[in-house]
Amino acid sequence: MKASVAGIKIGSLKTGEKNCITDVKGVRVGHVTLKENVNADECIRTGVTAILPHSGNPFKEKVPAASYVINGFGKTTGLVQIDELGLLESPILLTNTFCVGNVLQGSLQYMLQENPEIGDTTSSINIVVGECNDSYLNTARLMAVTPEHAIEAIKAASGDKVQEGAVGAGTGTMCFGYKGGIGCASRVVPFNENETYTVGILVQSNFGKKDEFYFDIIKQEDKMERPDGSIMMILATDAPVSDRQLKRLAKRCPIGLGRIGSNIHHGSGDVVVAFSNAATIPHDQKNGKENVHVLREDHPVMSLLFQAVAEATEEAILNSLLQAETTSGRMGRVAERLPENIINVLK
């Protein structure tokens, strides 16, 4: 399968079967989408997206992880411990800026129910939540996302092809002045004659102005008053890499972000969370040593993995635009889907 978006070839590496983050075996994604008209001026256009690193219990079977903050105008939780210990031990949840606390509470409640020992016979747990500001379309002050919605998103997670566009945490987000949202892509990297690795990217796109969009040949002036925006990028792989190597991979996400036209504004929160599920680290390990295998730094596959990250990030952002539909919002605002002239350029 060739790497393409609506017929345009993005890079040279092959995509996975579904061309999304769930091509990484074991990764699951779930959405909860909230749409409600409150009155003539206020409405709910928001939601939650949950990414689970594998099919087991992420607390009992942790995975190597890293984060990379390109611009830190964001309100994430859990990244400090990820960077300190290099492990992910919870689902990754995405939502809107004002509901990070509610989503953290819901994820924590779910993990406490699944793991009675947390806070009792064992240590605490590090919950990871990311966000984008969707207040242009969504009445954020209503804080419509509840802890129960977070639990629902986790329970809804599956390994199927991920629904993209104006869904889940992307329900109310914007991208280059058009309707953005959730987007995915994947790339397959050859290691030897018998073995390949997969890189999957999921984005929550909420950034950029129309005149910055690389594929908008008209370069329209963008006079919309709205926050600078943000993007959350979740990177998954089954390549056997360490947390340090995962940070190296995460640093290649900005390449795809820049190719499409982002200038990473002052008020933009641009954050990557990366993990590998090639091996899990048992919580109850009694042995004082870990026996793990990781790729050699000087093997040619490392550069191919870097390329895969850049290509998949660019395509995931494009997919978030291509799959989004025109969405009405608060104060009579409307976020238009990508216009046909740009879609035709992509074709």
Rank of each mutant, 00 (worst) to 15 (best):
G159I: 04
R337P: 00
I342C: 14
D83P: 01
R248D: 01
N126V: 10
L321F: 06
H293I: 08
V203L: 12
R187S: 12
Y197C: 03
L79S: 09
S124Y: 12
F98K: 15
R226T: 04
Q220C: 07
A239M: 13
M233I: 14
N206I: 07
A157R: 05
T327K: 02
K251I: 09
E42V: 12
I118H: 01
S303V: 15
E225S: 09
D23A: 15
S124V: 08
V188D: 00
I255K: 08
A65Q: 01
E131W: 00
Q323L: 03
T77I: 06
S276V: 11
S123Q: 15
S67Q: 01
C253V: 11
D228C: 08
E164G: 01
Y214D: 01
I281K: 14
F191Y: 07
H31P: 04
T280S: 13
P240W: 06
A312C: 10
S123H: 15
D160S: 14
G159F: 10
K75N: 10
G208S: 13
M331E: 09
I8F: 08
K209N: 06
F306P: 08
N19M: 14
D243H: 15
H283R: 03
Q81P: 03
S230P: 07
I21K: 08
S328K: 15
K2D: 04
V203Q: 08
A50I: 10
M302G: 10
T95F: 02
I343S: 03
N138V: 00
E114C: 04
M143K: 06
S4R: 02
K75L: 07
E297I: 13
G261N: 01
G170S: 14
T46Q: 00
R141F: 04
Q81M: 13
E17N: 14
D211C: 05
N287D: 15
D243S: 14
V273I: 15
H31V: 03
V199F: 02
V129Q: 02
G208Q: 07
I260V: 12
A308W: 07
L235G: 04
V128C: 10
G181C: 02
A335I: 09
L246M: 05
D160M: 11
K219L: 04
A153L: 06
P240T: 07
G172I: 04
N102Y: 07
D41V: 08
C43P: 09
L246K: 00
Y136A: 11
E290D: 08
L305Y: 08
G183S: 06
V5H: 03
V32M: 11
P339R: 11
S303N: 15
G180S: 06
D216I: 14
I10S: 07
P116F: 11
D41Q: 13
T97K: 06
I217K: 15
S242Q: 09
V199K: 05
L88G: 06
D228H: 13
F98W: 11
